[in-house]
Each structure stands twice: as structure tokens, then as C-alpha cells.
Design a binder for these strands. Structure first.
Lengths: 207, 207
DNA sequence: AAGTAATTGTTGACTATCAAACAAACGCTC
DNA sequence: GAGCGTTTGTTTGATAGTCAACAATTACTT
């Protein structure tokens, strides 16, 4: 698919161009002419590859998601000691990937293109959980779909928080945080505070 | 000349590729295949534009020299108050230009391509002095060629020192330094110590 | 000296990108 | 609603860049 150097080069240039423009203005205000002008390509070239600018944006997201999948699987690629992928080791790679593609994530998360991206991102993470984690789901009692969704959205939430804060922390810190959050079984604590305490408070109902 | 977007794009890519490679190894150890591989172009494309890699290097230097001339002339371009170019105001632009093209200057000055570059650089500066400085030469007693050479090599010397030190100082500092050096009339001081003193010493020749 | 691997320079068929032009549709402002 | 600049798609022939193959040269190894 598109092995020609020219095609790859052109598409990358148009992608970068669109992303750069999205830093300044809303997606709907960006014209095709804008895109090709900043990329310094001919307009006809755009139409050779895409029909609408939406196609270009979709392709950008698609490419980044492909990169995400590769990052996720990378630690197990050239290891003869066929290590079993664990949630923790894979998740570090996700944060690394976000860090490397910070420009994309910052722009898209802050843009009006967020919903479309979020859908694809969640879908990708879910797929990875099912296909790559042999020990998934960890507990026979839990609904796998629910757990996958839970984890995927949890990670998305961390990333959005991280990105909106300007990616101040290194990716290793984010991995630590997630690890700590998982170990602390935060839901239990939350539930304890929110629901268990009240019941403990209304002690001695009038018999 | 070469207004086609593809040509400009390709040449820039090949230029950058060669410069990047020159950071790692000697110019003579770089193969055409190296150049096109890192630039991700086809080898045939190289031969469409150049015969030898020397052509490419020459073109790089030529382009930077063109940029130098433009920088030099830029302060007087869109001024209605046709200001007379002065040595001091123009020289600041030279340092700015070096700062902007620091990658090029660092690589070339440290490489074995320095002699060829130096020749073109001096030649450019001399030409600028003659064509752009109406008050040049400043003193009717001095040989214009000698003065031009003097100034050109002096600036080259400062730049080489500056670049080899890793461009630690801002260009404004370099301009200040040059200004200070010119104001201090350093040659006079040097001559005073070395040659004037002796003559002063042999006062009162025996009549 | 022979063998081989890497690099060179060149070719030809194929395709992507180019510039330039055009008509149509879309805001605008008056 | 008429005029006007901008953006849009689309088309044209010309050219740049691609890929794969090839023989010639160079450089290294045995």
C-alpha cells in the first residue's frame, strides 16, 4: 500500500501541514488551498489522494493508531524468550508512544476533532487488550468487555489529563502512576469513602 | 531557476542529507548511495541534478552564500529613507546569518571541506564590501583590496572562533565585539608595542 | 590473482506531481 | 439580487522522480 517514495513523502507533508494548521484554527475553517499552500504542493496532488480534508484527518489518526499498536507490541517482537505480555509492561509503551507523538495528541485532544479520534483510540486499546493479553480478562467473574472498556477509558483519561497539562511529566512517571492506581485498587477506596462511611454513620437505628 | 516545487524539495532534502552525513564521517567516505538512502530518494534522482557529490556540496555552499548576501542587504531593502549601508550595521546581519545557519557552519568549518568553503566565503564578503559600501574604502590612503581582504578575513576569523566554541555567545555579542575591536584600533596598539616603541627608543640619532 | 561484495553510472518504462487554466459554487458587500 | 473575490473540483500536457535491471568499476579478502 503506497510504497512509492513520492506518495509517502507527499502524504506525510500534507498530514503535517494539516496538523500545523489545526494548531492555529478550527478544522472546519481550514481550506484545501490552505493545506497545500503550507505544504507547498499542488492542489491537484491533494485530490489525487483524498476527496475531502476529512479523509486526510482520518488517515492521520489511522496512522497514529497503527503506531500505537506497534509500540504496544514492540517489547515482544524480537525476544526469543517469548515473554507473556503483561498489562503493566505494555502500558508503559503506550505512554512512550503518546510522548513521541505529543504534537498530534496535543492538537487533536484540544481540537474539535476529539470525538472522532477518541472513538478510534478506545477501539484500538480494546482490541489490543483482547488480542495481546493472554491473561485477559484477569478474573473469570468480570465481564471482559466491561473490563476492556474500563481500562481503555481509564488510560485515555490519564492521557487527556497529561496532555492538557502540557505533558509535564515523563512517560515513566505516568506508568508509575497507573501502576500505583491499579495496585491501590482505587475503586475500593472510593467506595469505602463514599458509601461505606455513611452506613457506618447512621448507626443504631431505632429498633 | 529551478522553480519547480519537486526540484526545490528534492535538492533541499539531498543537501540536508549530505550535511547530516558530514556530521558523522568525512566527505570522501560518503557515498552517493549514502546520500540518497538517508534522504529517501532514488539514486537516479541524484544523477538527474548532479554529476558528483562535489556538485551537491558546491551547491550547498552557493546557496548559503546567497543567503549571506541577502542577509547583508536586508536592512536596506524596504526602507524609503535610503539609509547608507555602514560596515557596523551590515556586519550584525552577517553574524545573525551565521547563527541561523549554524548547522551548516559548524559542519563545514570542522570538516575537510573548509578550504573550498573559505575561499567562497572570503570572495563573497569582499564583493559585498565593494558593491554595497559606498564609503568603501574609508581612507584614500589605504589599498581597497587590502582593506577588503583584511576585514573579510578578520570576520572569518571571528566566526571560526565563535563556531568552534559552539556558538556560545549570541550574534549581538559578536557584533559588539567586532565593534569594540574596530573602535579600539587594535592594530595601532599592537604596532605601538612591537614597532613604534623601538623607533621611539632610538631617539636622537647622532647628528 | 582470482573472487566477491559494494558502489557506480546509465538506461527505459511507469507514475506522481507540476503549472496553468477553467467553470461552478460559495460567501461577502453594496 | 448583482457584482466580486475566494474556494472548489477537474482537466491538460510537460516534467520530475521511481523502480528495477544492467554492466563497469572499485576495494577487500583469501
Amino acid at each position: 500500500m503506497d510504497k512509492d517514495k513520492r506518495v509517502r513523502r507527499t502524504k506525510k507533508a500534507l498530514q503535517n501541514s494539516l496538523l500545523t494548521l489545526m494548531e492555529e484554527k478550527d478544522f472546519q475553517d481550514i481550506t484545501i488551498t490552505d493545506i497545500v499552500t503550507t505544504a507547498d504542493y499542488n492542489r491537484g496532488t491533494f485530490y489525487k489522494h483524498y476527496k475531502y480534508k476529512e479523509d486526510l484527518l482520518d488517515e492521520i489518526i489511522e496512522d497514529v493508531m497503527t503506531g500505537l499498536i506497534e509500540s504496544y507490541r514492540e517489547p515482544y517482537n524480537d525476544k526469543e524468550t517469548l515473554e507473556v505480555p503483561s498489562l503493566s509492561s505494555s502500558v508503559i509503551k503506550i505512554f512512550d508512544h503518546v510522548e513521541r507523538n505529543s504534537k498530534f495528541y496535543q492538537i487533536v485532544i484540544r481540537s474539535n476533532a476529539l470525538p472522532g479520534f477518541q472513538e478510534k483510540f478506545i477501539q484500538t486499546l480494546k482490541k489490543l487488550a483482547f488480542e495481546d493479553l493472554p491473561a485477559f480478562p484477569s478474573n473469570p467473574d468480570v465481564n471482559p468487555d466491561l473490563q476492556a472498556s474500563f481500562h481503555s477509558y481509564a488510560i485515555l483519561g490519564m492521557i487527556i489529563e497529561w496532555v492538557n497539562g502540557g505533558l509535564k511529566h515523563p512517560s515513566s512517571y505516568m506508568a508509575e502512576q497507573l501502576s500505583a492506581l491499579l495496585k491501590a485498587e482505587p475503586m475500593k477506596t472510593a467506595f469505602k469513602t463514599k458509601y461505606v462511611l455513611p452506613t457506618w454513620h447512621k448507626k443504631e437505628p431505632s429498633i
